[in-house]
Design a protein around this nucleic acid. Structure first.
Length: 855
RNA sequence: GCCGGUGUGGCGGAAUUGGUAGACGCGCGGGAUUCAAAAUCCCGUUUUCUCACGAAAGUGUCGGUUCGAUUCCGACCACCGGUACCA
């Protein structure tokens, strides 16, 4: 009798069986023997309270790897936790008057329940949330170690200040120059902030990128660009006439092109360069210019369209290589005070930006690099600067050199003249981590009027967040708290004040992988790290993944880690998003897919009967109303269907479009798999036959296992899915039809159950149990293939005539080239294409193809 | 602008050392089963021409290398992502 698989009944049953067997618990390093370790980690979620399909895809992929590694004999660490500090909890507190802690822990409970329904092979015993005092206390201890080693420091710096909410905002929280919550115009304020000295490792962070051979190229390039190392020279331009106070030695500029120094026609300072600001005090034109430049700002679109603006400061400098040559000093809006020295020299022929500026203000343009195959007498620069390589000319001692050789020659000369030296500049800046927020990790220091900044003694950690806070007033609730910030100085015991800044939440996620590996056990951390396979979204390519690399290095330095490479993540996979179609009403409002209906070619809004339009396929988001709730999918189809669907079709690194019909297809396939097993009612494993039909079935199974294994190893889950589809079709055609092949069918089914376990673990257990196999399939080893079944005795070769397929022959694998050629030439199908033609050549590629070349 | 990626049927995509293009899934068309439906199963489905047997063209465009190119090389086009007055 044919039965159907019931996901609702089965899934819960098998999950509790896994729990009872404590199957996914990590084995301690001592007990693991010579098992290789595999640390499989997915980027831990923010506890928003609700799982979305993106989570399902992310964690399904990680689970495939974790389950596969377990089946192939690895000691697997596959943990889960919560990235739980951050603004949404404070927003909830302000909007709904719930405590951030309460809101967060409730969300965690809700999401944990959802996660558990997915049947992920997680070791929950290592779970933590970053807002647990144990976690942020350990983070505070780490902070103090960094402070002691000089990896953390305090300095005044410019920050985005929201004057309504009275808080610093991260760059991401400033939208079009306004605070994302208050809508107030954001000001630049100079505040004293805490910084991590990430630039200390700039060279190592960039150089080590090439050792990360299991990271996507894309991410490595993005990090390289972000760190932005450029090599060049820093040197001074002596001022003529009355020197500006503090600049008696001249104005310092940075350049990557000292070879073009003889093409210099101006020096330009940033609008907020100290000299510019000083001169503005007495010169109204300069003052106006600074204001104008500040008004345009440096937002993305502003830069796109903003004109080059400048003002002559009236100063003159001497050319470093020719003191008689005077060059004007300008201030220009394209010079950034935050990069290099905040001052540049313009060599217009060799730089488009300098050229635009020179043309606008009628400054000289003197080419000094002659492109190959140009003539010095006739070569001219018009509207396009030449930035490529060439021969230096019109440049005194550099004349005749290649640009490549002139570069070190010019630097050597600057050094000889004691005007400057070779330097390296980075785009990367130290990481400002101070936030004036409540729901974050308190910075564990005390400010004492006599002793200065005093670390909180380790015995007093964690510095706990106070529970009794109010969010009525804008700004930092820790600042407003009546007593929290009062603390005696640990050194002199006089009344002092606690630091009220908390740490950027990116800090929390920069070392959590290490906490999972071993909370208070360095040896255990050494055993597990680095993460063997990390899976997450590409949106973290720079920030989170760069910060994590920094933290591992810093933790190494303070003795918290023993990671020889300094790289915490050996393998990274960035998965694509889950997208869904969008709909809009006739009033241009987004509609949920359930609110529309297709009638013939057109879509209508069900409620009103008005026409609706189909929008683009986009990432699922609440605002576009194109989300699909995983809970709803799990209750109607089961977790296996949700997992299977998000792993099918699209390659894992690309986006996958969620479709109802695709989900139904996945549900159909689950039943199809079950029907293969359902047909095998004899639960005694019968002997495997050696007849032709049995061997054919066995070949299909063993080849499928081989292909699936390779696909999982290479992160090509969609290919594994396709192979499983084909395999199931083959088995279904045979299953239960012929007693002679029953043994082969049983073997295939038993292999199939194990191969689908990483994808559809609940179904796999039900199938495994139905076959009468021992134990849980989640604990079973990966099937082994018999190599003799992977190769065929005979092979079908296509025959081409002049590269076009004209026929095929089936030949024994052992035939020689000549024998194959003879058979091919005698083939009836190709005869008509050879008739009356000269055979020029016959190419036989053993096991592949025969090509007959005729004239 | 610069850097990177991707272009293959109606759609998602296979083809991973240069060797049968379109596996597998979705959709669509036809059929079987059924009183009927659901479910399931089978067949077909790149385009054009042909009653058919077949033939020709075809992997963004144009060219090249090769017996043979989705794959290698050159030039270009489109889309997606990242990034930017970075000196």
């Amino acid at each position: 009798m044919v039965t159907r698989y019931d996901p609702q009944a089965s899934e819960a049953k098998w999950r509790s069986a896994w729990d009872q067997a404590d199957l996914f618990k990590t084995i301690s390093p001592e007990d693991a023997g010579d098992m290789p370790k595999a640390y499989v980690l997915e980027m831990f979620p923010y506890p928003s309270g609700k799982l979305h399909m993106g989570h399902v895809r992310n964690y399904a992929m990680g689970d495939v790897v974790a389950r596969y590694k377990r089946a192939t004999g690895h000691n697997v660490l596959h943990p889960m936790g919560w990235d739980a500090f951050g603004m949404p909890a404070e927003n909830a507190a302000m909007e709904r008057n719930v405590h951030p802690s309460e809101w967060t822990y409730q969300n965690i409970d809700a999401m944990r329940a959802q996660f558990q329904k997915l049947g992920l092979s997680l070791d929950w015993s290592r779970e933590f949330a970053t807002c647990d005092p144990e976690y942020y206390g350990a983070q505070q201890a780490l902070f103090l170690k960094f402070l002691e080693s000089g990896l953390v420091y305090r300095k005044a710096s410019k920050v985005n200040w929201d004057p309504v909410d009275n808080t610093v905002l991260a760059n991401e929280q400033v939208i079009d120059g306004r605070g994302w919550r208050s809508g107030a115009l954001v000001e630049q304020r100079e505040l004293t902030q805490w910084f991590f000295q990430i630039t200390k490792y700039a060279d190592d962070l960039i150089d080590s990128l090439e050792t990360l051979d299991r990271w996507p190229e894309k991410v490595r390039i993005m990090q390289g660009n972000w760190i932005g190392r450029s090599q060049g020279a820093t040197f001074r331009w002596p001022l003529t006439g009355n020197p500006v106070a503090g600049y008696e030695d001249g104005i310092e500029t940075f350049t990557t092109r000292p070879d073009t120094l003889f093409g210099a026609s101006f020096v330009a300072l940033a609008p907020d360069h100290p000299i510019t600001r000083e001169l503005a005090k007495t010169n109204p034109d300069i003052k106006t210019f600074i204001e104008e430049a500040a008004r345009i700002g440096t937002t993305e679109e502003a830069i796109e369209t903003a004109p080059k603006l400048g003002v002559d400061l009236g100063l003159r400098v001497k050319h470093p290589f020719d003191p008689s040559w005077e060059i004007p000093v300008w201030s220009a809006n394209f010079v950034l005070s935050t990069y290099g020295t905040g001052a540049v020299f313009g060599s217009p022929a060799g730089d488009q930006r300098d050229l635009d500026f020179a043309r606008k203000y009628d400054l000289p343009v003197k080419p000094v690099v002659l492109p190959p195959e140009e003539d010095a007498a006739s070569y001219k620069i018009d509207k396009e600067a030449y930035t490529g390589p060439g021969t230096i000319y019109g440049s005194d001692f550099l004349d005749g050199m290649s640009t490549e050789d002139a570069l070190p020659a010019a630097i050597a000369k600057l050094e000889e003249l004691s005007l400057g030296e070779k330097t390296t500049t980075y785009r990367l800046r130290d990481w400002g981590v101070s936030r004036q927020r409540y729901w974050g990790c308190p910075i564990p220091v005390i400010h004492c009027e006599s002793c200065g900044i005093v670390p909180v003694p380790e015995a007093d950690l964690p510095v706990r967040l106070p529970d009794d806070v109010s969010f009525d007033k804008p700004g930092n609730p820790l600042e407003h708290h009546a007593t929290w910030k009062d603390a005696p100085c640990p050194k002199c015991a006089k009344p002092a004040r606690r630091e009220t800044d908390t740490l950027d939440t990116f800090v929390d996620s920069s070392w959590y992988y290490s906490r999972f590996a071993g909370a208070d056990n360095k040896a255990e951390r050494s055993y597990w790290l680095p993460v063997d396979q990390y899976v997450g979204g590409v949106e973290h390519a720079v920030l989170h993944l760069l910060y994590s690399r920094f933290f591992a290095r810093a933790m190494n330095e303070v003795g918290e880690l023993d990671l020889p490479t300094g790289e915490p993540i050996a393998g990274l996979f960035t998965q694509g998003m889950v997208t869904h179609e969008t709909f809009k009403s006739s009033q241009d409002k987004w509609l949920e897919p359930s609110e529309v209906e297709q009638q013939g070619e057109n879509w209508i809004e069900i409620a009103t009967g008005n026409p609706a339009t189909v929008g683009p396929i986009e990432k699922m988001s609440k605002s576009k109303k194109n989300t699909v709730d995983p809970d709803a999918i799990i209750s109607s189809f089961g977790a296996d269907v949700a997992r299977w669907f998000v792993l099918s079709d699209s390659p894992p690194e690309r986006d996958v479009e969620w479709t109802q019909s695709g989900a139904e297809g996945a549900a159909r396939f689950v039943q199809r798999v079950w029907s293969v097993f359902d047909a095998l009612t004899d639960s005694d494993s019968p002997a495997i036959g050696t007849d032709e039909a049995s061997v054919a079935i066995r070949r299909a199974s063993h080849k499928a296992v081989e292909a699936i294994t390779k696909a999982i190893d290479e992160f090509r889950f969609n290919s594994a899915v396709a192979t499983i589809h084909e395999w199931v079709s083959t088995l279904k055609k045979a299953s239960g039809k012929d007693a002679a092949t029953l043994g082969a069918e049983f073997e295939g089914a038993s292999m199939l159950a194990r191969c689908i376990t990483p994808f559809m673990p609940h179904l796999a257990e039900e199938c495994w149990a139905h076959l009468g196999q021992d134990g849980l399939v989640s604990a079973a080893p990966w099937p082994k293939t018999d190599n003799t079944l992977l190769v065929d005795d005979s092979v079908t070769l296509p025959i081409q005539v002049n590269g076009k397929r004209r026929g095929e022959i089936k030949v024994a694998k052992t035939l020689s080239k000549d024998e194959v050629e003879a058979i091919a030439l005698a083939n009836e199908e190709v005869a008509s294409f050879l008739a009356g033609k000269d055979i020029k050549k016959v190419i036989v590629v053993p096991g592949r193809i025969v090509n007959i070349v005729v004239a």
